[in-house]
Write a protein that binds this DNA or RNA. Structure first.
Lengths: 156, 156
DNA sequence: GATGAAAATGAGCAGGG
DNA sequence: CCCTGCTCATTTTCATC
């Protein structure tokens, strides 16, 4: 269970700690301690507090999809039939491994998704053979990311 | 400098290791070792190989923006004047901390960005006072994410 | 490639200010 | 809230298979 997040106070030291770990989750606490000039134990205490608050939701290894040959990223706006139950469509989308994000959105579309494919041909296949096949999907609009210039988390 | 990524061969054991660490970057190597039935040293060797290949581009603590009161995520399509130098606009966008992603895209817009704000009012402020102020930005289309249903990395 | 063991480093806890 | 000192766990290396 996650914390409620109420009453969380983050001071400058907390922010420094978080900034280090957001860059590199495996950075040793003692190394951070040396950098910011307090003891490892103090950092450890603060991390426990931050975890308990729910602010830290985990850590991940980031893998570079290009090395695996995945070089085509695209956003796809999806129009769903009015009668369609959106959650059912989302469940189907979740089965497509190339779909990395899925949002209900305001505006033109019902759903906006992010997909990662090897190349344009692969993207076309995912669109035609998987996404368009989902019941309720009437039309899609695809925006291929030619180049991602910024990719970061919230700034602390 | 990153590796070229050529000649990278990932076998089933590598994939198992990566799957564990993509879920939790701080999982001890020895724990993974017990799970998949080889020695810690072997995992360590493989990780060094995977890092050298460039497949692993690092690790990050994931922080939960909701705890900090950031609950409004939106995608914004940006139309730039034809004469505008896009890289200059991107440089300005990078200065706006609420902008988390920025892509050059095919299709209607020049640029698609993802922003994270505290609420709709904050989003409006970022749009009017920061994004619209950038030289060359002529028009924007905003899609607020009502609910993110899927958020994951490439499946290994 | 994988292994086990040794050496180096870090994590986590207790006691105290 | 922070520190020091201690113990235990983990990482990292290395000789060997």
């Amino acid at each position: 269970m996650k914390s409620t997040g109420e009453n969380i106070k983050i001071d400058g030291i907390d922010k420094e700690i978080l900034r280090f770990l957001m860059e590199d989750a495996r950075k040793p606490v003692l190394e951070i301690a040396r950098n910011i000039g307090i003891s490892g134990a103090a950092i450890h205490q603060r991390l426990r507090k931050l975890e308990a608050s729910g602010l830290i939701s985990g850590s991940k290894f980031i893998i570079n999809p290009k090395i695996l040959g995945y070089t085509t990223m695209a956003y796809i706006g999806i129009y769903l039939d009015k009668a369609m139950s959106n959650p059912v469509a989302v469940k189907e989308l979740a089965k497509i491994p190339e779909v990395l994000e899925c949002h209900y959105t305001t505006g033109n579309w019902s759903i906006l998704i992010k997909v990662l494919c090897r190349d344009n041909e692969h993207l076309m296949h995912v669109l035609n053979k998987h996404i368009q096949q989902i019941d309720g999907v009437s039309r899609t609009e695809t925006f291929i990311s030619l180049n991602q210039q910024i990719d970061r988390q919230i700034s602390i």
